[in-house]
Amino acid sequence: MEYRTLGGTGTVVSAQCLGTMTFGNESAQEVAHAQLDRFVERGGNFIDTADVYSRGRSEEIVGRWLAASPGRRDGVVIATKGRFPMGDGPNDAGLTRAHLTRALEASLRRLGVEAVDLYQAHAWDPLTPIEETLGFFDDAVRAGKIRYAGVSNFLGWQLQKAALLARLRGLAPIVTLQPQYNLLARDIELELVDVCGHERIGILPWSPLAGGWLTGKYARDAAPTGATRLGEDPGRGMEAYGPRNAQERTWRVLDAVRRVAEGRGVSMSQVALAWVAARPAVTSVILGARTVEQLDDNLAAADLRLSGEETGLLTEVSAPVMGDYPYGPLGVDQRARTLPG
Rank of each mutant, 00 (worst) to 15 (best):
L18Q: 10
L155T: 15
L183G: 01
M238C: 01
L184N: 06
G308S: 02
A123N: 00
D296P: 04
A246P: 06
V116F: 15
E248Y: 11
Q180W: 03
D139Q: 05
G312M: 00
A261M: 04
C17D: 03
S107H: 09
D187N: 13
I146F: 10
L168H: 08
Q180N: 11
Q334M: 12
G8Q: 08
A319G: 06
G87N: 15
W65N: 02
T96N: 04
A300Q: 15
R55G: 08
L209D: 11
R142L: 10
I201S: 07
G331L: 07
L254K: 05
R72T: 14
R4W: 00
R64W: 09
S14Q: 06
D117T: 09
S284Y: 03
R186E: 07
F39I: 06
V253Y: 00
L313W: 00
V116M: 14
R220Y: 09
I286D: 01
T338M: 05
A149I: 06
R186W: 09
R109L: 07
T250H: 07
I188N: 11
Y218D: 10
S107P: 06
R57D: 12
L111V: 11
V77C: 15
S107L: 09
L95R: 00
L95P: 04
F137A: 05
Q180S: 13
D51E: 13
V317M: 00
G288C: 07
G75H: 14
Q270N: 12
Q158G: 07
L314V: 01
L165K: 05
P320H: 08
S58P: 07
N153R: 02
T5S: 13
W65A: 01
A28L: 04
G71V: 04
R97A: 05
T20R: 08
L155G: 15
P326A: 01
M238T: 09
D37L: 02
I286R: 01
D51K: 08
D324M: 12
D51V: 03
G265M: 04
S307D: 09
W65K: 07
G150H: 11
D255P: 03
L155Y: 14
N91A: 08
A28Q: 07
R38V: 03
S58A: 15
G242A: 12
V253H: 01
E60S: 15
N25C: 05
L111K: 13
D88H: 08
D233G: 00
S69Q: 15
L168N: 06
A32H: 06
S58W: 02
S58I: 04
P234F: 00
S284C: 05
V175Y: 05
T291L: 02
I174L: 03
A163E: 02
R4G: 08
H198V: 15
A185L: 13
A172S: 09
L108S: 12
G288R: 04
R244A: 09
V151L: 08
M322Q: 12
P90C: 10
I286H: 01
G8V: 03
L159G: 06
C196L: 08
L6A: 04
D333N: 13
E239G: 09
A163V: 03
L299K: 03
S284R: 03
A223P: 11
I146S: 05
D139G: 03
L254Q: 06
G10A: 12
Y325S: 09
A336C: 12
Q160L: 15
G89V: 11
H99N: 01
A115F: 14
P340N: 04
A93G: 05
A79I: 13
G19W: 03
A300W: 06
